[in-house]
C-alpha cells in the first residue's frame, strides 16, 4: 500500500484528503504544518508521495521542498496552492525540478488529484 504524506495547516482539508485517499486504497500520514512534515521526512518512515500545501504559517511549503533537496530525499510531490502564489513559486520550483504539472489549485477536483497521484506513482489503471 502506498503511503501518502498529506501536509496542510487546515485540518478540515486534511480530513477530506484523508477520507478520499483511504477510500481509494492509500495509507495516509498527516502533518499539520511544515515543521511536522520535515520531521516526518527526516524519520525512517517510508513516504511514497507527498501532498503539500504551500501557504502555511511558520514553515511554508517551500521550506519542506528545500529540506527534501537537502537530505536528498526527492519524494514525488503534488503541490497544492491558492493559485497565484503558485506562479511566484513556480519560478523557484522550476529550479528545483518541479513544473506546472505538479501544481494543483484549490479547491481541487478530487478525481483530478487521483489521476495525478496515479501518474506520479506510475500506477497504470
Amino acid at each position: 500500500m502506498y503511503k501518502i504524506l498529506v501536509v496542510d495547516d487546515e485540518p478540515n482539508i486534511v480530513k477530506v484528503f484523508e477520507a478520499f485517499l483511504i477510500k481509494n486504497g492509500f495509507e495516509v500520514i498527516k502533518a499539520s504544518g511544515g515543521e511536522e512534515a520535515i520531521k516526518v521526512l527526516n524519520s525512517d518512515t517510508r513516504i511514497d508521495l507527498m501532498l503539500l500545501d504551500m501557504k502555511m504559517p511558520k514553515v511554508p511549503g517551500i521550506d519542506v521542498i528545500n529540506e527534501m533537496v537537502r537530505i536528498n530525499k526527492k519524494i514525488p510531490t503534488i503541490i497544492l496552492t491558492g493559485s497565484v502564489d503558485a506562479e511566484i513559486y513556480l519560478i523557484d520550483l522550476k529550479a528545483l525540478g518541479y513544473s506546472r504539472e505538479d501544481v494543483l489549485c484549490k479547491p481541487a477536483d478530487l478525481f483530478e488529484l487521483l489521476e495525478l497521484i496515479k501518474k506520479k506513482l506510475g500506477i497504470v489503471q
Binding site: V16, K106, P107, A108
Partner: peptide
C-alpha cells in the same frame, strides 16, 4: 480557497 476546498471536497 480553503473553505471552498473543504466544501467541494466533502
Amino acid at each position: 480557497n480553503n473553505p471552498l476546498m473543504i466544501i467541494s471536497g466533502n
